[in-house]
């Protein structure tokens, strides 16, 4: 569905991605984990056309989207819930969801809204509230819900667990699984929270300094000693069920 080949991207003279290869097949949840500053956000942003890929290619459903402007990429069926949620703070929850549907035929709006509100009953309770006054977890739900309103076939999520309490993190990850299974949306998930992400994902990649260092099924990486040492609480034998505390970037 999505294939990234030898992708390079840089900010001015600083190169952030050095030849990245990633494949995402339809129906999968694929996760990308890595330390702070590894280039995960950069990869998602490059997928969306900003910054531009310096070298390499991005193909989505057989079409080369490497040079398309961002708004065109999104219209191909890719939704991006960017890092830090970026909801519209002065607009109501409903208006935020409505903004997610700008590229979609209005006749689907009522149904899609229903589906998203069923997925996030919390948002239904707060439908008229201003986005900026939602709690962090609710804002994350809104960001995901807003992305779903564009009827994507591929959903890009950038650190949905950022700054959330363990219980809410688990809730969000359950919902991501539901989105993937019930709504048949392919998910590409970027995470710091390696334990939860690897447990959820069918396949996973590890990024180190702008390169893919390792890849495999979620279970394989979860069992890998190197991965455990680097990303799972300093290599405890059995990863405790609670996620590592997040460091805000």
């Amino acid at each position: 569905m999505l294939s990234i080949r030898n992708l390079e991207a840089s900010y001015g003279r600083i190169q952030a991605l050095h030849g990245v290869d990633i494949d995402v097949e339809a129906g999968e949840i694929v996760t990308l984990i890595g330390a702070n500053g590894a280039g995960k956000t950069t990869l998602l942003m490059t997928l969306c056309g900003k910054p531009r890929a310096g070298k390499g290619s991005i193909t989505f459903e057989g079409e080369d989207i490497t040079r398309l402007p961002t708004y065109q990429i999104v219209r191909r069926g890719i939704a991006h819930a960017p890092e830090g949620r970026r909801i519209f703070p002065r607009m109501s929850v409903l208006e935020n969801l409505q903004m997610g549907a700008v590229t979609v035929d209005p006749k689907y709006f009522a149904d899609d809204l229903d589906r998203v509100l069923t997925l996030f009953p919390r948002l239904k309770e707060r439908i008229g509230q201003r986005g900026g006054t939602l709690s962090g977890g609710e804002q994350q739900m809104l960001a995901i819900g807003r992305a779903l309103m564009s009827r994507p076939r591929l959903l890009l999520l950038d650190e949905p667990s950022l700054g959330l309490a363990p219980l809410v993190v688990r809730q969000i990850f359950d919902i991501i699984r539901d989105i993937n299974r019930q709504q048949k949306v392919t998910v590409f998930l970027v995470e710091q929270n390696a334990f939860h992400a690897l447990k959820l994902a069918h396949r996973a990649y590890v990024m180190v300094n702008g390169r893919i260092a390792m890849s495999g099924s979620g279970a394989e990486l979860l069992a890998d000693a190197g991965v455990r040492a680097a990303y799972l609480e300093g290599g405890h034998e059995a990863p405790p069920p609670r996620p590592a505390p997040e460091a805000a970037p």
């Binding site: 969306c48 900003k50 939704a79 960017p82 970026r86 519209f88 564009s150």
Partner: peptide, 14 residues
């Protein structure tokens, strides 16, 4: 109005 609030989010919404 959305553009006033967050340009990057706008772009990522198409």
């Amino acid at each position: 109005e959305a553009l006033r609030e967050d340009e990057i989010a706008c772009r990522s919404l198409g």
